Every structure is written in C-alpha cells, then in structure tokens.
Amino acid sequence: MILKYTIWGVLILSSLMLVLIVFRSRGASRLAASLGLNVVVAAFLLYVLSLLSTYTHIDLPINTVTLGTATVLGVPGVLLLIGVKMMLL
C-alpha cells in the first residue's frame, strides 16, 4: 500500500519538475506550442476524412498511431495512412 503511494508521489513530482523545466526556457515552450498545434491539425484532418468516408470509402480510425503519424508527417502522413490502408485491404 505504501509502495503504491510512493510511486504516485514520484510520478507527480517528476511530472511537475518536467513541466517546470520545459516552460522555463523559451525554445521549449515554443516547441510544445508547435507540437500542440500539429496534434490539433492532425486530429482535424483525420476527423474530416472520417466525415467524408461515406463518399471516399476510406475509413481511418482516430487512435494514437494514426494521430501520431499525422502529427509528425502532416498531410503526407495522412496520405501515407490512406495508402497503407488501401494496400492492406
């Protein structure tokens, strides 16, 4: 029981220290904002593709793998996911 609280305490403390370190430097906060924007744009692209799936017959699930690929690679990442989906099915 004590080990469980110790692990949670260490997790919370290390998370707070990480947030403090990241937001102290200007470059890191700019990087975090850019990454956040990329995640939002990627989720929006996947959502629009999901809405248009009745017309295009391309169903891509919105999960961590597809969102991560679309976040890192952008629109070419979404096209890559579509190509992989078409090749596998």
Rank of each mutant, 00 (worst) to 15 (best):
H57I: 02
L13F: 11
L45N: 10
N38C: 08
H57R: 02
F44H: 06
L52C: 10
L49N: 01
W8N: 01
L60C: 01
T71E: 02
S53G: 06
D59L: 14
F44P: 02
G74D: 09
L37M: 07
S50W: 14
G68M: 05
T69H: 04
F23Y: 13
P61F: 06
V19S: 10
G77W: 14
S34L: 10
L73S: 09
V72F: 11
L73T: 03
I62N: 02
V48K: 09
L13K: 04
D59E: 15
G36H: 00
I12G: 04
L11I: 15
L79A: 04
V10H: 01
Y47A: 11
P76I: 11
G83D: 13
Y5A: 05
A28V: 03
Y5E: 09
L46R: 01
G74S: 05
V22A: 07
T56S: 12
L88S: 11
L11C: 12
L80Q: 09
L20Y: 15
V39S: 01
L18W: 07
T6C: 04
G83Q: 14
M86A: 13
T71G: 07
S53H: 06
K4F: 15
V10N: 05
V78H: 04
L52D: 07
G27H: 02
S15N: 03
S34T: 09
I21M: 09
I21S: 02
F23M: 05
L20T: 14
V19E: 08
